[in-house]
């Protein structure tokens, strides 16, 4: 048995070495720097104020091109807003619908409506954006390697053409009108730099720097990707504590039962 444990340790060591090799092999692109997020760790929660500011950034900037189709306006109440506050936020938003005669109309959005899509379909979105449809942002934080760190790095990772070194221009054949982003795979990204200092004016008086906007909208998108995360972690703590207690009792029972056989 002891031998077996030793061999298990050897197998595990092989596994860890292998994992190290994987990390080295993947090291060709710029990795987004690790940032600390309010929602990290086993007890992390979403920063409601940041996520609310992030919604403002989404609504005033991103929503012009990016849909958020898996969310409904009612979901905003989970960010700590009352239904009247949300109704206030969406009072100017209209969504497509059909009237009683089956004709397409636009009507004011209700809480139960999904977020308004900026384009009626993917083809229209691509046509309006030089052939590349802006991705839906509903699960974007889960859909990208690096998650929130990557989204933040991307939003703040633009380098203006005149700041690029001649080697970079040559290596990635960057032209004057291209958008160069340090963290985007291949560096040339269709999206023009979306955020800048004072792109929005925050209602709570927070200074709207580029970094602040990026961090807020990332917090909002992280929430949008997994609004149930806090419930998941809370349930997890309870389940683990319960199972530990049960394991302790089971072990005691097992020892009692086996006490005459060892």
């Amino acid at each position: 048995m002891r031998r077996l444990i030793v061999s298990g340790a050897i197998a595990l060591a092989a596994l860890v070495t292998g994992a190290g090799a994987v990390a080295i092999a993947a090291g060709t692109e710029a990795h987004p720097p690790k940032r600390s997020w309010h929602f990290q760790g086993p007890f992390g929660t979403y920063d409601r104020a940041a996520a609310q500011r992030g919604y403002q950034v989404y609504a005033e900037v991103c929503a012009a091109c990016h849909s958020l189709s898996l969310l409904a306006y009612r979901n905003l109440m989970e960010l700590g807003l009352t239904d009247n506050q949300v109704k206030g936020l969406i009072k100017d938003i209209v969504v497509p619908d059909l009237n009683d005669d089956g004709q397409p109309i636009e009507r004011p959005a209700r809480l139960s409506d999904s977020f308004r899509k900026p384009f009626p379909n993917v083809a229209a979105a691509a046509a309006a954006n030089n052939g590349k449809a802006p991705p839906d942002l509903s699960v974007i934080v889960k859909a990208r390697e690096g998650g929130a760190d990557y989204i933040y790095a991307l939003l703040t990772g633009y380098v203006p053409f005149d700041k690029l070194s001649p080697e970079q221009v040559k290596e990635f054949s960057v032209k004057k009108d291209d958008n160069f982003n340090t963290y985007f795979p291949g560096h040339k990204i269709a999206m023009t730099p979306p955020l800048a200092d004072d792109k929005v004016t925050y209602a709570d008086g927070t200074k709207a720097t580029l970094g602040q906007e990026a961090s807020d909208v990332t917090e909002f998108l992280a929430w949008a990707s997994e609004p149930w995360m806090e419930d998941r972690k809370r349930t997890g703590v309870r389940v683990i504590l319960f199972l530990l207690a049960l394991a302790g009792l089971m072990y005691a029972v097992k020892r009692q039962v086996w006490s005459n056989k060892h």
Partner: peptide, 15 residues
């Protein structure tokens, strides 16, 4: 099995 039957019953019931 040996052991104190009361303790054992308690363990079983609790588990």
């Amino acid at each position: 099995g040996h052991g104190d039957p009361t303790r054992r019953d308690f363990l079983m019931v609790a588990t």
